[in-house]
Design a protein around this nucleic acid. Sequence first.
RNA 1: GCGCCCGUAGCUCAGUGGAUAGAGCAACCGCCUUCUAAGCGGUCGGUCGGACGUUCAAAUCGUCUCGGGCGCGCCA
Length: 547
Amino acid sequence: MSYKQKIQTEIKKALNGITEEIVVEKTKLKEHGDAATNIAMVLAKTQKRNPLEIANEIKEKLKSNTALISKIDVAKPGFLNFTISDQALIESLLEVYKSRENYGFVQNKLKEKILVEYVSANPTGDLHLGHGRQAVIGSCLVNLLDKAGYNISSEFYINDYGEQITKLTETSWAIYEKLNGKQINWSEGFYPEEGVSPYVEKVLEDMKSGFMKEELGQKVKDLILKSQKQLLSSCKVEFDKWFSETDLHKNKVVEEILKKLKEKDVTYEHEGALWFKAEEFGDVRDRVLIRSDGRPTYLVADIAYHIDKINRGFNKLITIWGADHHGQEVSLKGGLKALGYDADKLEVIFVQLVSLRQHGQEVKMSKRAGAVITVEEVLNEVGADAFRYFLIETHANNRMVFDIDLAKKQDKDNPVYYIQYAHARCCSIFRQYKELNAEEKFDFNNPELLMNLFKSNEQEYAATKDLILKILDFPEEVILAAKSTSPNRIANYLKDLATNLHQFYTICRVISKDLNLTKSRLALIEAVKITIANGLKILGITAPKAM
RNA sequence: GCGCCCGUAGCUCAGUGGAUAGAGCAACCGCCUUCUAAGCGGUCGGUCGGACGUUCAAAUCGUCUCGGGCGCGCCA
């Protein structure tokens, strides 16, 4: 139990029988103590009393609990400000050593089974930076939800059926013919030549003569898919399952869904096509399910795929799409609703677009102009750690600018190193200590020893306490980030923690002649190290022992 | 026209209805004979796009408005 929860419990006890939620939060200013609650102001309304009066009553009831709270103040409109006792801080800190590599993570698995689907790029070319952002956000979210106790699975939906594959096949064949010296009039319906060409050339190396057009297309698709998989894997984006759209058609799942939609009477025929009455389910217009030439649209397959997910036992579906797909959400949810499924089980996260800045200039990404910045280019330039950090730092809802020059820098300007350096610093202190005290080993899990942390001057005391409080924020931060599906919060938390560590390091010398103080500070450093490492684990960024 | 997202320091971005809105970068000034200066401290920088409302309390919630991005295909 965190110190905040302990205070909460105590207040609840003091005010027995109240139904209002008691919020205890960290304070921003030192003058306000370590934690505060607004409960007196909340109660003032229902009880029609002066909040200061209520606050003072609560203060009287709690002030004897010195083991937890060393000081209580009542402030202005009706805040109760608490200063946490040193003893309580140490007790909380012990949790870090008990849990170690699981510190901050929820131990008891929740029942909820969540499936996160992300990237799901077409196997028709290179992944661009937008995919990269979705990939990083998705994989961090998967890690985060997993650590927050959910049963989590991840999937990449392969659009390997229908139009795109036909287009890819035609494009590949055209490239093949061009290589054989034939004159090609490049069709509007083709994919950009420079994106597909390298794959075609590679495939042709192993092809025996006399192959069919479709065979070439399949091979090119397989190669593109394989390279996407390798590329994603190289920046630690892994999936539990690669789900093929073709299987959905082969296994008659799409057919089945169509049949059910017809049975529910939410379809009609118009101009030779089969339409879904999407407008009845909140869409701006009705949508085509089967084109007049008999080919199904992506929408049917999408509905079928999401229903298949629910039928596989997931209680919650998270689907990550690029922001340019937001118009599809209502149609898809409409399809689920039409078939009697709870559309609220599906949460679509839209990742806004990424632009790139290079040499101080914004590079506009445009597929048409062929100015596509690929994941591979950027990844090769900046490395996996910086790639992930830069793409996770900004909330998905926000458009972002990827500053490639900054990400490339191997120096202090690059924020990813700031966090990693904090971890390396911790490791370095231990190396130093071991050199001086080869045989000396001790148990961190020792409250008496840890109390030495507070035997210091005022400035040191403040830095020590700030650092401890920041470490103790981590478990709550994980839960809040998970609940709001905001893995970027973890990046921001780690930046703050690193700051606290660097400040502490500057003010408090760890290794000194005072052995007890040294040991207690080493224990604190150990706790920082554990917390940073655990946070970086969620982000899929390495925690270097030395830099 | 309708819908979704965004608008916070010169730039990039944080900020679960709380108290005096933060960080990094850029600019300027300091700090290494002791654990990594990839660090720390300081200065400069803001009508949180605007208006009205709800509230003891609003960057945060609501309505309206201005600005930007995206979407509204028998494309995906």
